[in-house]
Every structure is written in C-alpha cells, then in structure tokens.
C-alpha cells in the first residue's frame, strides 16, 4: 500500500480485456459439467471489474479525506456489506440471521483492526484511511468466508444431526450437551481455510496485497512484515467472528427450554446464490427477542 514512485508497468484497457478471457475457462467448465454456474460466473466477473474500477477512484478520493467520522462511516459500510454477503451464500436462514452476522462482523473486525492499527502499526492519525481501510478490507474479506462456512455448516449439521441432538435432549441432556459436537464441527470447518492458507503462505501462495506492494516496488522484506501482521489479524478476526456467529445461531436455533428449534430454519431457493433482495428484509431482524418461548 506504500505508493512507491517507481511503480509497476501500467496495464492498458486492452490488456485488461484480454485478462477477462481467462474467465472463459470457468464458463466452459460450467457448461460442460452442467454446473449451472455460468450466469453467476459472468455476474461475479462483471461485478468484480466494475467494483474494483470504481473502488480505485473511490480510494483515491478517500485517501485524501481527513475526517474521522467519514472514514469510520465508510468502514461501517464495508462491514455491513461483508455481513450481508456472508449470509447471502448460506443455504438456510432464520429470522435475525443478518443482524447476527452484522453484530459479529462489526465486533470482531473493529476489535482486531482497532488493536492492530492503534496498538501495532500506529499511523498518525489513527484513522489514516491509507492504513485503516485496506487493512479492514483484508480482515472483512476473509472473515466473510469463515462466517459463511461456519453458519452453513452449523445449520446443516443441526438438520442432518437432528435425531442425534434430540436423542441427547430426550435423555436429559442440556441443549449445550446435545449440540456441542455440531457447534465444534462448524467452528472447526470455518477455521480450516485460514489455517490452510497460513500453512502454505509464501510457499504456494503470495497473498494479493503483498504481490501488489512488491509490484509497486516496495521492498519484499517490508511487504512480508505487513503480510504477517495481516494474517494474524485475519486469523483472530475470523476466529472471533465464527465463534460469535455460530454462538448466536446456536442461541437462536435452540431454546432456553433445551429444545431444538429447527422450525425457525427456512431453506432458501437456489436463487439465493445470486443475491436475494426480496427475502433480505424478511431475514433481517424479524422476530428477534429472547431465546425462550416456553414459560
């Protein structure tokens, strides 16, 4: 993120367009194997290009700002988008799932990014957007995957393990005793990508941010140091986020009366993959309240 004057070779519009041809590999595979992903792939590619080109100019503007409130607002907006996207990819929903996701994302990202920026990197001022925004972006982008995996795995786990969970309840187990295996499994699965990527970091993969810095002429040594900090931030934010979101889902899908409340779980149609604006309001926060319904 250091704007090195040296700079990398510029990529022209034509070269950009050529790189887009690479996505044809995915589309081709999808058609041959009938994965039904063609449309999503094209939409995702277009979104990626448009969002990045836009963000390029937005960032140029943002980095010139010096208003703490404005920058914090942008950060919150980023968290909001991450929270919504995390839920968008799950196969099932329950009332309040979006709010749960937002609370978790805000808490985990704010805590971890705040600690790292204020306690470790210490830019002046603390809200210097050139540090805060990209770091937060890295954290959010990765927490997002953890949340989706954790939520999805937990909801599926409760559904497929329903008989097992209810057997434990029927024998006098508490809701925690009955569900803990499912909770643990969901958190474990959600942490796997983070752990995997740390394992092979630098050997197999050069993370995007570091690649960008190096192409821009930053010394690899310095870029690596940033990357290490960022990976630790990602790992802890993902852990906190997954723990929070699965915990909240557990509270929602069981009751204080030690019942399994799968009646609160609704399966989303395949269209949920594209971005379901219609059902969005429905799952935002309706019917949130205590976890007990039986007096």
């Amino acid at each position: 993120m250091t704007p090195a004057p040296a700079g990398a070779l510029a990529i022209s519009d034509g070269q950009l367009a050529l790189s887009a041809l690479l996505i044809l590999v995915n589309v081709g595979l999808s058609v041959v194997l009938r994965l039904g992903l063609g449309r999503s792939l094209v939409v995702a590619s277009l979104r990626m290009v448009v969002q990045l080109l836009l963000v390029g100019s937005v960032l140029e503007w943002l980095f010139r700002q010096d208003d703490a409130l404005l920058i914090v607002l942008v950060a919150v907006a980023m968290a909001l988008i991450a929270a919504v996207s995390a839920v968008q990819r799950t196969r099932r929903r329950f009332a309040g799932i979006y709010l749960n996701s937002l609370l978790t994302v805000l808490a985990s990202a704010a805590l971890v990014t705040g600690l790292a920026v204020v306690g470790l990197i210490r830019p002046q001022p603390w809200y210097d957007p050139q540090y805060l925004i990209p770091l937060l972006g890295m954290v959010l982008g990765n927490t997002l995957n953890g949340l989706t995996l954790g939520l999805d795995r937990f909801m599926e786990g409760l559904r497929s393990g329903r008989d097992r969970v209810e057997t434990a309840l029927a024998l006098g187990g508490t809701r925690w005793e009955a569900c803990q295996e499912v909770v643990r499994d969901a958190i474990r699965v959600a942490m796997i990508p983070t752990i995997n990527s740390m394992m092979v970091m630098g050997l197999v993969s050069l993370p995007g941010m570091m690649t960008g810095q190096i192409l821009q002429g930053a010394a690899p040594e310095a870029a690596v140091r940033y990357q290490i900090v960022i990976l630790f931030m990602i790992a802890s934010a993902t852990a906190l986020g997954v723990f929070g979101v699965v915990g909240l889902a557990y509270g929602r899908l069981t009751s204080a009366d030690h019942q399994l409340r799968l009646d609160r779980l609704v399966t989303v149609g395949e269209r949920g993959i594209g971005g379901a604006g219609g059902s969005f309001r429905r799952w935002w926060g309706a019917g949130r309240g205590g976890t007990s319904t039986l007096g």
Partner: peptide, 20 residues
C-alpha cells in the same frame, strides 16, 4: 419449570420411532 427441562426429560422419557 420447577423440575428443569433436562430433569423433566430424564423422568418423562421419550423413545423415538426410529432410534439413533
């Protein structure tokens, strides 16, 4: 509520049709 739900279920024991 006076028994506590886990205690209740250990005393009113439900056996599912298809046990697991």
């Amino acid at each position: 509520s006076a028994w506590g739900l886990p205690c209740w279920r250990s005393m009113v024991s439900y056996l599912a049709q298809r046990p697991v």
